[in-house]
């Protein structure tokens, strides 16, 4: 029958008229990212970093630059290297996360942001001072210890370097059992 096709088409139109829109108005509202989201602005804990440069070695593009000098000697925690330069050129970074995967001391984490646009290219190089000052909201990517805690970088609070390691700090009772009191 002539006109039946038009009616059929219009039923689809009316069906969609009642539907809630799937799109969102971006700058006003944002889709929440998963805690595992590999985002910009790396989270770096200087206290955990030994300057071993595994991340720089494993980066497929070689965009991490690390310069260290021998730091002071600490009898309890061992000697360590002090970090002079820790530059990440996120202008060339592809956020594959291999640096985070390589870090043996849980010092480097992916960030959780995605809106770090800059006007100049040189601003995209994150210097060590900015990494030190940046808010510590690590992504749980490749860090099962954070996932087990149910940490969400978008809603959770900032984590200190003691809370992000893969090893738990032993409790006082534990220590008493294993070590004789002095």
């Amino acid at each position: 029958m002539y006109g039946l096709g038009i009616l059929q088409g219009l039923t689809v139109t009316f069906k969609n008229l009642m539907r809630k829109p799937f799109t969102i108005q971006y700058p006003e509202e944002r889709i929440p990212q998963h805690p595992r989201f590999r985002g910009e602005e790396f989270t770096w804990y200087e206290e955990r970093c030994t300057g071993c440069a595994s991340c720089a070695k494993y980066c497929p593009l070689g965009i991490i630059k690390i310069v260290t000098h021998p730091g002071k000697t600490n009898m309890q925690e061992g000697d360590y290297y002090a970090i002079d330069v820790f530059d990440i050129d996120i202008g060339r970074c592809m956020f594959c996360g291999l640096c985070v995967e390589a870090c043996p001391y849980d010092a480097l984490f992916m960030g959780s942001g995605f809106e770090e646009g800059q006007y100049r290219r040189q601003d995209l190089v994150i210097p060590v001072d900015r990494l030190r000052k940046a808010s510590k909201r690590p992504s749980t990517w490749f860090r099962p210890q954070l996932e087990d805690k149910g940490y969400n970088p978008h809603t959770g609070k900032e984590l200190s370097w003691r809370q992000v390691g893969r090893h738990q700090q032993p409790s006082q009772e534990d220590l008493k059992e294993k070590w004789a009191e002095r």
């Binding site: 998963h34 595992r36 989201f37 590999r38 594959c96 996360g97 291999l98």
Partner: peptide, 15 residues
């Protein structure tokens, strides 16, 4: 892509 974001943290360049 949302499922992939849960799985591996990225939407297009997955690795």
């Amino acid at each position: 892509l949302d499922l992939f974001e849960m799985l591996c943290g990225a939407r297009i360049t997955l690795s």
